[in-house]
Nucleic acid binder design. Structure first.
Lengths: 340, 340
DNA sequence: TTTAGCACTCAAGGTTACAGAGTGCTAACA
DNA sequence: TGTTAGCACTCTGTAACCTTGAGTGCTAAA
């Protein structure tokens, strides 16, 4: 569809624009290595590329700027694998060399590295518990009417939920309850907890003890309550350094949406394996339609755990960002695998 | 030191400037209720107030703007108690009416209410564990070389720390360890854990078992590791709506410092009881020297638990902010008290 | 001590002029 | 037929200039 030369011109324009954020003129392109045609010829090609929707002008006599369609073509067909500098690789290695025992810390550090290496905003969705099994459950009474249930999963995740207990309940009853739960639930995938709790276990409990009904209802409610996935973002302020966001209005609307972590989390949850690129209006969230979002996933074994992503202006260093995400995705998966 | 009329003029200027963010001229002041003097007289007073350091001009022929010294005087002597609107009170009531069982949720909601009611940025330092005692300790092995220790405090706080265990350790030994720890440590104030762990307990363990040494060292390290206090901020983007921050540079430096939560936490930790106002350069952090920070504390019984604060431009609605902080501080303390 | 009057200052906004970058089109060229 | 040089045209950004309006400081009178 596009001629060889058109592709060449398009690539030069996007590469240059990613660096300079300025519209690119025909003269500048003609000077580039690999380009033999004269400015006039380039102008003709540019007019064609504009007609095809790959380029736009900011005003009648300005140079050209890539359109979203242009970026899409660039990402799909023109991307050359980016070799991370040994310095950048060093930063990653160094970060993961420190012994870290916690998911949280690892994930948080990843967000930091991502934004540091790219100067964009990183978003990391913490590991989901879906795929793990229950390792231990413990209940600790706090007062005569409240208690906390603590769950430890096979992946080492610790969660706790508070719930009410009726005043008349004896602590020995609570102990009995914990024992039954541990007997029956250890090893059960977290995702099956709901089913087990309301089926099997409920029956057993009814046999053994009468006054536990109410407690059990509260506990069940606490355990099944959907916990929002942990979200880590880093380098938000990097966005302010991008020339496309030197407008308070834009910054504000972008930051407003970034404060709504649940929205962002929803966005990243749906991502599946591999690298995904969302350019401008391909983003569901309106406030992000001047931006591109690139997501990747990390896993434990073959189970997908979570998502890492980078948000930047549509004029993004796609090539580098994808490499960094790749490297980090591998590194994260490797780290988690080494734990088990 | 200041005449009655000077005080009157100063108050009008600050009140007006807080509303309009524009320099105030003598004519505007003369028109105000309660002011009988003519613009010329006011001008003389203003010149005096400027000489005394309470006012500044933005340029030779502009109206006057309060200086930090002016705000300080205003806060110390001119503040009239602000009556929260019943609507605002309603928002607070309503937020706390919903049953909440967790410190985290309550504290997070508080941050939200604070920023919603004031249109500034709220900062809430989560409850510190210093004053609480240990209620329960539990250790769960995760793999053959790692485990997680879970602590529950008397205030219902749950914390967990990961640590290494030598491979040769039997799980029965771990159990023994937990039992000893629970026997000896339950009821001990968290703040005394360090002492107990390295003194008394270390001795007992040495008697009972030999191969626990290494595990114990790791556990001790994990437990004593200083956990950063949880910090909740809300309404950061409110700052962008303030006219004094319609400059990307300023916004950026402010947001950069707000991302450094450890710095902020350090700042709030030092606060003691009652409301404290830090105006402009009274703030330790350079990037905040265009801002004022107002802090208050909340408590459980007579033990101070944490800090709530509001960050805004020096041109802040001091009166309202202080009322809101007061109301919330009371509400928070009341909520926590009701739990125990 | 207060006030009216007046000259003076400064910021902000609008207008004009101009240079620079870049385009599209035409006509000549290979 | 594709490529290129030349040229008129368009638009942006910046600087210089002017005008307006708000506000001051000072002086002299009340």
């Amino acid at each position: 569809m596009l001629t060889e030369r058109q592709i060449q011109v398009l690539k030069v324009i996007i590469d240059e624009f990613i660096q300079s954020a300025q519209p690119i003129g025909s003269r500048a392109i003609a000077k580039k290595d690999g380009i033999t045609a004269s400015p006039a010829t380039i102008r003709n090609e540019m007019a064609d590329l504009e007609e095809l929707g790959f380029l736009v002008k900011t005003h009648t006599s300005s140079g050209r700027v890539p359109s979203e369609k242009g970026y899409r073509f660039y990402v799909d067909h023109l991307l050359i694998p980016f070799q991370l500098s040994s310095q950048d690789m060093g930063v990653i290695q160094h970060t993961f060399a420190r012994e870290m025992l916690e998911f949280e810390k690892v994930v948080q550090q990843s967000a930091k590295v991502l934004s540091d290496l790219t100067s964009y905003t990183s978003i990391v969705l913490g590991p989901q518990v879906f795929e793990t099994t229950l390792k231990k459950i413990q209940i600790v009474g706090l007062s005569d009417h409240s208690a906390v249930a603590i769950l430890v999963t096979s992946s080492g995740h610790v969660e706790h939920r508070y719930f009410n207990v009726p005043k008349m309940l004896k602590s020995s009853d609570l102990e009995k309850l914990v024992n039954i739960l541990n007997d029956r639930l250890v090893g059960v995938p977290i995702i099956q907890l709901e089913q087990k709790l309301s089926g099997e276990i409920a029956g057993i409990l009814q046999e053994h003890m009468s006054n536990l009904d109410k407690t059990y209802a509260f506990l069940q409610q606490a355990l099944l309550e959907e916990q929002p996935a942990k979200l880590y973002m880093d380098g938000k302020t990097n966005m302010m350094r991008q020339p496309e966001f030197n407008d308070i209005q834009k910054i504000q609307s972008l930051f407003s949406i970034m404060e709504q972590e649940d929205e962002i989390a929803k966005l990243l949850k749906t991502s599946d394996k591999g690298i995904k690129v969302f350019i401008g209006h391909e983003n569901q969230i309106r406030e992000m339609q001047d931006c591109s979002l690139i997501t990747a996933s990390y896993s434990l074994g073959d189970k997908q755990l979570g998502t890492i992503a980078l948000l930047g202006p549509t004029r993004m260093e796609y090539s580098k960002v994808i490499s960094v995400l790749n490297a980090l995705s591998v590194q994260l998966s490797r780290t988690f695998d080494s734990w088990y």
